[in-house]
Nucleic acid binder design. Structure first.
Length: 533
DNA sequence: CGCATTTGACCAGCGC
DNA sequence: GCGCTGGTCAAATGCG
């Protein structure tokens, strides 16, 4: 739906205009008052309908941006918690090999993941498999593949280009939020995004220059290599390859961190990938026996409802995400942006061969998909579809909050209304002070440009404001900008929606740290700015 | 003419 | 050590 949505959204604007013109011209030509009135009426109705449609989309966009912030806060808090507990948490290192975090529903069948590749090795890798399922966006399936490495060989690239995100730069930009990163050496990260796309490359807002093309083993489609040309020394590369099994799916693998201010249209993708990257990379520290990238997720339920939900295998996650120094092979995360098609159920098969066949670091899947788009869109849901994963240690993040949302949706069987969602949210927030504080922090960081020192009461106010905004009171902020979005190419709807100019400010804090010239960044005034003024 | 793309060559890492 | 593979380089080519 991503592409369709964009097409619709941009089309809606054009449609309104053309319809107006058409109406006028019809009136002039036919000079018929009755018909004119009918046309005007139907036109108005049509416009009204489309306006509602647009507003719905804008609301969802706001919601998703808030979600993103929310998860970021969760991750940070979890990471801090892990640091605090790391000295006492050695027993956790003996935990199981498999990890399934089911925050949502996924059609993905892990059994199918073994279809491709060396079966024996893959079986072994299955034991290491960490599967994160987040029912974040229903209409999109995000396939994000993350690879982290700190092998000595990588330093060459880092030294030459000086571009891989240094820990200092992380600290410089984000302060204490990235203390963890400070403890780890510069790492290479890869984020792969799968999306249905008819164009040769995905339009992600950045400028790329192709520097190579190869036929990779296991995929007849050539893999194209691009580097970011926004800044001369930007280290970011991307690989673009069609999926062998479904040519309509484009697999874009991002690697590295931009060392320059990003175009507004690129911030959504950048912040999303960087958030995912930091999520995992932050847990790969040698000094941190416990993986906090996973911990960030595994801690989420505790943050939400205060319960220890289960047998998380933090140490094993570390194993997964902390590859052998001698190995260039990486663990992977998968985000799938293709609509809930069958292909999404065997993500690994669709990944670039080098990753899909990687037995040592099987992909970690962040599946943002659902066959019930509207439901999943609003629900992070609990992992009701993971009962089959008996071979994995499954952790269901069935928080009260999520259950409420999920129940709401299941009962209604219809897309939850914003009102219903608001009600559920309100109830969950009011009954769970932790959730309240977390969301308040997220919202306040949005509204106050990352000022996290707001007290609880203030946070609550802001939270309310945030919810109100999200639930429909400020869609006007985004409308014009949204329609002005770059509609060319193939920008997955998920990112596309996130990249609305109106929310630039929200995502900036999530962006990869910019090592230099941060102050020179020229960005249009954000909502936060407007509010602050 | 300048820039982007194409494409064969080259290099490094890994497995056998 | 050798072959395979992924990734990058750089000269050639194409395009606006």
């Amino acid at each position: 739906m991503s592409v369709e949505t964009m097409a619709k959204m941009s089309g809606s604007a054009r449609g309104l205009e053309t319809r107006k013109k058409r109406t006028i011209s019809i009136c002039l030509e036919e000079d018929c008052c009755v018909q004119e009135n009918d046309e005007l009426k139907s036109g108005k109705e049509e416009m009204g309908g489309e306006r509602e449609e647009n507003e719905e989309r804008l609301k969802m966009k706001d919601y998703q941006s808030l979600q993103l912030r929310f998860f970021d806060i969760l991750r940070r808090e979890a990471a801090e918690k892990v640091i605090a507990d790391s000295s006492n948490s050695h027993d956790e290192t003996e935990e199981p090999e498999l990890l399934s975090l089911c925050l949502g529903r996924s059609p993905r069948d892990p059994k199918k993941e073994t279809r491709i590749g060396n079966t024996a090795k893959h079986k072994e890798s299955e034991d290491l498999e960490a599967c994160l399922t987040l029912g974040l966006d229903s209409n999109c399936e995000l396939s994000m593949e993350m690879v982290s490495d700190q092998s000595p060989g990588e330093t060459k690239e880092a030294d030459i280009e000086g571009t891989w995100q240094s820990n200092k730069s992380v600290k410089a930009k984000n302060g204490e939020d990235h203390e963890i990163s400070e403890q780890i050496p510069a790492k290479k990260s890869r984020v792969s995004v799968r999306a249905r796309c008819d164009t040769p490359t995905m339009s992600d807002g950045c400028q790329w220059r192709k520097y190579g093309q190869k036929i990779a083993k296991g995929n007849p489609c050539p893999r194209a290599y691009y580097r970011c040309t926004v800044a001369p020394a930007c280290p970011v590369r991307k690989q673009v390859q069609r999926c062998a099994e479904d040519m309509s799916i484009l697999i874009t693998t991002y690697e590295g961190t931009h060392n320059h201010p990003l175009p507004v249209s690129a911030t959504a993708m950048a912040s999303t990938t960087s958030a995912a990257a930091s999520m995992l990379l932050s847990g790969s520290s040698t000094s941190q026996p416990v993986d906090n990238s996973f911990a960030s997720f595994t801690n989420a339920p505790r943050l939400l409802n205060g319960q220890n939900l289960g047998p998380f295998d933090l140490s094993r996650s570390k194993e997964v995400f902390f590859p052998n120094r001698d190995s260039p092979l990486f663990p992977t995360i998968t985000l799938d942006l293709t609509s809930g098609s069958s292909s999404s159920t065997h993500v690994n098969n669709l990944l670039p061969s080098s990753f899909a066949l990687n037995p040592r670091f099987p992909p970690t899947s962040l599946s943002f998909c659902s066959k019930e788009p509207n439901i999943q869109q609003a629900v992070w849901g609990n992992g009701v579809l993971n009962n089959e994963r008996t071979h994995m240690r499954s952790v269901e993040l069935g928080t009260q909050f999520q259950q409420q949302l999920h129940q709401n949706c299941l009962q209604n069987q219809a897309p939850p209304s914003q009102e219903a969602l608001a009600e559920t949210l309100t109830r969950a927030i009011s009954t769970d002070p932790r959730l309240r504080s977390v969301i308040a922090a997220a919202v306040s960081s949005i509204v106050g440009q990352g000022s996290t020192n707001v007290n609880q009461a203030r946070g609550g106010e802001i939270l309310e404001l945030g919810l109100n905004l999200k639930l429909g009171e400020h869609s006007q902020f985004a409308s014009s900008n949204l329609l002005a979005q770059n509609g060319k190419g193939c920008l997955p709807g998920y990112f596309n929606r996130l990249s609305s100019n109106s929310y630039t400010g929200n995502f900036m804090p999530l962006q990869p740290p910019v090592p230099f010239s941060v102050s020179k960044r020229k960005v249009p005034p954000t909502i936060s700015d407007q509010i602050n003024h």
